[in-house]
Design a binder for these strands. Structure first.
Lengths: 224, 224
DNA sequence: ATCGTTGATCTGTGATCGCAGATTGCAGTG
DNA sequence: CACTGCAATCTGCGATCACAGATCAACGAT
């Protein structure tokens, strides 16, 4: 938890805390089923429980956390059915965002994406899961941002928020990173060629193979 | 505002308030640009400002409300670009939900939908906008619920939350209700025939013609 | 030694208070 | 009459306290 409570208030405290937790969850800083409490988080961050609880409430309504019967918050556990649903929605939304991004792509945007992809390749071969996950998240997010549709991006990020923890427990597999990187290269090739439909299918392939790996992991029951 | 604070706490107070406001916004109880404040709402509901502000915060992060520079909350105003984005996402998500609902349809479900459609027809011809909007919202929601995918439904409802107020200002047009009802009849016909793809296209047609009407209204600038 | 009970301590949730900006309206001055 | 300026009042936001339910550990009885 690397949080600076002393930072100037560009946003409200709860907004900063929300953004911080959201980013951490998306990149897999927490394990599925892990419990969080507003008071302990607040003490850790050096603030009162007030802004923390509002941030946690928001994450709960978005489906990232769930409230147990014993009134304790924990990271949501995915069922195979949940994963199927999320994967289907992801193919729709991320497919559309990727295609539109390809259509709106400029030389500057393409250069930025290319650089992120260059960061991603060594991260994948290094086998460092944390580094790879963060690079992967920013890579995808940057593409979707280029679509110019902020609501679409926020809805996609909500889905990442839910699958993030499960991705983290599955991705230490070096094979996963390698095959995923193959799809990313396909995305780059299609982007430079300006083939929007190819970009879309490459992104969808990436999503679906990732879902396949996660599903295998869920079936093994290792996260319970 | 018909809210019973004395109700038994099936859920937390903030959850009840959130659900209540959400439903009101979706069915157009508030006008675009209308301002809301936590204290006045709290006084109106007979509770403290605490649960109300958490509900309003949630609605803000979902894009239904926006925080002005003068620290006041108001219902989001849609730009034509916003509408294009939302409409595109709606066709993806509601199209998928409708198709899947058609595939999962049972005799009981079909009867329930058919009854809701029967409620909808007289509401459309009556010209009563409030009645029509509520019947329309429950009709669509009931179909999407049958898909068996709760996350998909909640994401769709988030979109309704954003377009809801604008639909309310546009729908008093009797022609709109009539043409929309035509699509609903097409949905029913396709559902009874078991043609999932036809259900999907009928829903998409409904969404896109509604968007066309809203766009015309936005262009007239009547909501500013 | 084992089982049952009880109290301390977690949890989320609601109420209340105070603070800092921003708006509004009324008063005073030119 | 027009304009300026100050004060009352609104806003969201954070801190703090209180309360009910649930967990858990320690203690006492059998």
């Amino acid at each position: 938890m690397t949080f600076k409570a002393t930072a100037l208030r560009r946003d409200s405290l709860q907004q900063q805390i929300y953004d911080h937790l959201r980013s951490d969850i998306m990149t897999g800083a927490f394990k599925p089923g892990e419990t969080l409490s507003s008071r302990s988080l607040a003490a850790e961050l050096g603030v009162s429980a007030m802004p923390v609880r509002e941030a946690l409430t928001r994450l709960t309504t978005e489906g990232a956390l769930e409230l147990t019967t014993s009134r304790t918050l924990r990271l949501r556990l995915l069922t195979p059915e949940d994963l199927d649903e999320i994967t289907a929605i992801r193919t729709d939304l991320e497919g559309r965002a990727a295609k539109r991004a390809a259509e709106q792509m400029t030389a500057e945007s393409l250069a930025r994406i290319s650089k992120l992809n260059d960061d991603l390749t060594p991260a994948a071969s290094s086998g460092n899961a944390d580094r790879y996950l963060k690079a992967n998240a920013t890579y995808h997010a940057e593409i979707y941002k280029i679509s110019g549709w902020p609501l679409l991006l926020s809805m996609i990020e909500r889905l990442w928020l839910i699958v993030g923890p499960s991705i983290r427990t599955c991705v230490p597999d070096r094979d996963h990173m390698a095959t995923s990187q193959g799809f990313h290269d396909a995305v780059m090739a299609a982007l430079t060629k300006g083939d929007a439909e190819a970009v879309r299918t490459a992104i969808i392939d990436d999503i679906q193979t990732a879902a396949k790996d996660i599903r295998a992991f869920l079936a093994s029951g290792q996260d319970h």
